[in-house]
Amino acid sequence: MAGGERIFVQAIRRYSADHGIAVDVRAGGWLIAMRRGNERRFAFGYDIGLNSAIAHRLANDKSATSEVLALTGVSCIAHHLFLNPKLGGNVVGAGWRDAMLELLHENPQGVVIKPNEGTSGRSVFKVTNEAELDHATGEVFSMCTGLVISPYVAIEDEVRVVLLSDVPLVVYSKQRGTDWRHNLDAGAKPVLLADGETRTACVKLATEAARAIGIVFASIDVVRVDGEWRVLEINSGVMMEALGKLHPELVQATYDAALDRVFGEN
């Protein structure tokens, strides 16, 4: 096994070895071909192919996710989409910066600016004034075709729920470190949640969110703000690298259950 290989890739290798599946790992582990007889399946990034194309696209688009959840009455954090002005005036329109400033003025506590697509908390900025707004939008637009702006809220707790067809396979909180974000790549620590009121509330909300966009296998981040739980985002690719270092058997069992579904196992 190659050194430094992602836990996701290792999990697929272990499952495949136990089920007579040939594995061909390409592109540094980001493309995995799995073959058993005449049956061939693929994993790409952290996606193993259980979700429909539209569910996958909705989940990977923060603005689209928040719009669909709002339409279906699922409590969520709003994400307002802004397209890169380099796409041209006919696509973007002339008032994009004024609309950004309006959102900033409506939220004196600040706003959060981040890419519309992407994970792990990269290129995420907290903005409280016009100069910070211009810096953040310049940074994000330098690498993305779209960004989202959401109101900055004081997050009391953040919980991730990994669902497979409404069944919660993993539920853990993200214990924040010195950073204001709860991203695991920013130093937050995953702590498994025991049965109780908090776990029940988070699973219920995550299940409602998954049903709203029609997704089968996903990780849903929910946050508590002013004592109320809201959906922050939905991830079509289920990444459990940090959790896998602490609870490898649970992570393997979760990927095994999803891969069982991929290959039609009971």
Rank of each mutant, 00 (worst) to 15 (best):
T65Q: 07
I77T: 06
P168Q: 04
A201S: 05
N107W: 02
M239S: 14
V191N: 05
L205W: 01
G244T: 02
F8W: 11
S236G: 15
N38H: 12
A201V: 01
L103A: 05
H105K: 04
P168R: 00
M143W: 11
V140S: 13
A33T: 07
D221I: 00
F263L: 01
W30K: 05
V203C: 08
Q175T: 09
H79Y: 14
F125Y: 11
P115Y: 00
Y172D: 07
G73S: 10
A33K: 14
L184F: 07
A53Y: 11
K86D: 15
A210E: 01
E197H: 00
D226R: 02
S63D: 15
V23I: 13
L50S: 04
D256Y: 06
H182E: 06
V153D: 05
N60T: 14
L71K: 11
Y152H: 10
M100V: 03
E130P: 02
A253H: 09
C144H: 11
H105P: 02
A78V: 15
V238C: 04
M1L: 12
Y255V: 06
A194S: 09
I213H: 03
F141G: 10
D47S: 08
Y255H: 01
V216K: 08
V225W: 12
V162M: 02
H19E: 03
R181A: 05
M1H: 00
S142L: 02
L101Q: 10
M143H: 12
N90T: 11
G45V: 10
G45F: 06
K114T: 01
E241C: 09
S173Y: 07
K245S: 11
A206Y: 00
H56N: 14
S173N: 07
D179V: 03
H105R: 15
M1K: 03
S75M: 09
G89F: 09
I32Y: 07
F263K: 00
L31F: 10
C202P: 02
L205I: 01
N235L: 08
T119G: 12
Y152L: 14
H247F: 10
K126M: 10
A17W: 03
S75R: 11
V171S: 03
I21F: 00
W96F: 12
H80K: 07
